[in-house]
Design a protein around this nucleic acid. Structure first.
Lengths: 339, 339
DNA sequence: TTGTAAGCGTTATCAC
DNA sequence: GTGATAACGCTTACAA
């Protein structure tokens, strides 16, 4: 790695025989540059292989350059969906996006670290709980922020309606005519998990169905918030052990559903003939599993969050968009009642 | 969002009744500051909630501040493993790491974009093929780089020995006494895929085993490089259709193995009684699947790559570390020959 | 249309 | 120890 000095705007100016301001104009696509000089400058830039230095640029211009999206974990199932939406939307702006993983052990510390660095000019916080400390930090750094899947009175946010999702699931299974409804839940009591359970139970109540505690099961593993294939697998074996199965199961999450399906298949039980299974979020083996699921429309949320962030950046207003997105039911083969 | 002006080092200096250079000294932990003034300054920093601006800092200091890791896709199975290693190692340095997703459609363009921005002072390129264009870009921007899972004569890199992994897999299955060895491969001919196949076949050749083309199968889906559960699932059904199964299958990847296992279980076939199954990389359902697999030791690679990058940054040498890491076999229940 | 020069918020090099 | 002050590489009025 040879140590050739970094080329600056000055060298370009000298080579093109113009002033640095002219180079800057060309760089920023100003209209007030004659075609001839523009070409001269571009040639010089080419020849010297010059690229403007972001930090200098940022320091001088104050324009936001760097957008960031922070998540506790990249393995979060819906993260990639949101990200797609964000990326598609961001292409329209001349910004770059940077992914930041706060770490799921101590997200708060991660976020703090992130803001302390001050590298991002605007940020989307995904599934990150806004503690007072972090809130203060955001205020202090004046970083425009939009929350996704968390809420706070003084921020723009897009919340997922987990309660509604749970309700939809319960309602669907009831309407399909299943009688003994159960749920495979995460062992960890996250608000997400609790809301889905609450919605599900409320649906059963509304339809005067029995709520049998023995049909509510969770795995024992806690990793990834308890939303793993393993957990789903475990839960099924716990049903087996107790000798009492529901006739329809709503899994708190698709990943768990995959594990559950595998376990059921090992036990020789067929879906949906012997037991119906529902998931939540995106589905992995969609083509073969044909899993009925609740779609959170995370892609759309990514798009919306990014749009809003762009608005805040370009023309700040003091409005707060605090939206709750309602999920929809996507019915597939796994919950057809064939009895 | 109130618009309080950003607080600078000047305000801190004024409040603490010192010069900005003194504030800077405190900021950078210089020893030449009396305890008294140090405390004054720190108090002012606290009270004003001041944080130094990275871009200004970078401009003035020339010290590297931002490390980046770029990948074509965050869903790459081993990515998180590498990342863990990187993170653990980076804690020891006072750097921040940023994740950059080049996009798997056109990684080259993504990387270019990334370097054009010039936000990173040093970078780890994960599974990114170094085209001449990108190479030129890296040279032009003088960015220290370390490659993981790709190689180039003029860079430090850590390559995975996919050939060796394939060979180990083949050898293992032969030694277990299986006779009809097959493989589920990605439909896309990536170099990774080809190498694993080549290694596998060479092992069979060396042990004078027959190579039956009909036992080499791939799914039809191409998404995620053909390394999906779906692909594994499809492949099993293609065996079924052709009416001829191997007695042991090596899957090019663990994700495919999961799909294959599910399909097998649907078809009422037991592992390893009826058919043995091997994976590659990390395993998801480990606890229940007990899948024999090839471990690439991606965590270690993450650590090593980061260490090397740190070296290049702090005291540049002109040595090139071009290492090939050999994978190891991890035997679990799925390939026990019980016949 | 182009050039001059004043910042942007730090660090670093001097003096004192 | 501490304080001026010159960089750092760029943008952006303001002049010309």
């Amino acid at each position: 790695m040879s140590k050739s000095k970094k080329v600056t705007i000055y060298e370009v100016a000298k080579r093109a025989e113009v002033a640095i301001s002219t180079v800057s104009r060309v760089l920023n696509g100003s209209e007030n540059v004659s075609k001839a000089t523009k070409e001269k400058v571009e040639k010089a830039i080419q020849e010297l292989n010059f690229r403007p230095q972001v930090s200098a640029r940022k320091l001088a211009s104050k324009e936001p350059q760097m957008l960031a999206i922070a998540v506790p974990s990249f393995t979060t199932p819906y993260f990639n969906e949101v990200l797609k939406g964000v990326k598609d939307e961001i292409k329209k702006m001349d910004l770059d996006i940077i992914m930041y993983n706060t770490g799921s052990k101590d997200p708060e510390e991660g976020v703090q670290n992130f803001f302390d660095r001050g590298t991002a000019d605007a940020v989307i916080l995904l599934s990150i709980n806004l503690s007072p400390k972090v809130h203060e930090l955001i205020q202090a750094t004046q970083t425009p922020a939009v929350l996704v899947n968390s809420s706070h009175p003084s921020y723009n946010y897009f919340m997922l309606n987990d309660y509604q999702g749970g309700y939809l699931a319960g309602e669907h299974l009831v309407k399909q005519g299943f009688q003994r409804l159960g749920m495979i839940t995460s062992i960890l009591e996250t608000s997400t998990s609790k809301e889905r359970i609450r919605g599900f139970k409320d649906a059963l109540k509304n339809y005067k169905m029995e709520i049998d505690k023995e049909l509510f099961m969770s795995g024992d593993t806690t990793k990834h918030g308890g939303y793993t294939e393993e957990a789903g697998f475990e839960a099924i074996y716990k049903y087996e052990k107790q000798g009492k199965f529901p006739d329809a199961i709503f899994c708190s999450n698709d990943t768990m559903a995959v594990g559950a399906l595998y376990a059921l298949s090992k036990l020789g039980m067929d879906v949906p003939e012997d037991i119906a299974v529902m998931g939540y979020d995106n589905i992995k083996l969609s083509k073969y599993l044909e899993l009925t699921t609740i779609d959170q429309k995370m892609y759309t949320i990514g798009v919306q969050a990014t749009k809003r962030l762009a608005e805040i950046i370009t023309k700040p207003d003091d409005q707060l968009y605090q939206t709750t997105i309602n999920p929809v039911l996507v019915q597939r083969g796994s919950t057809e009642n064939k009895k």
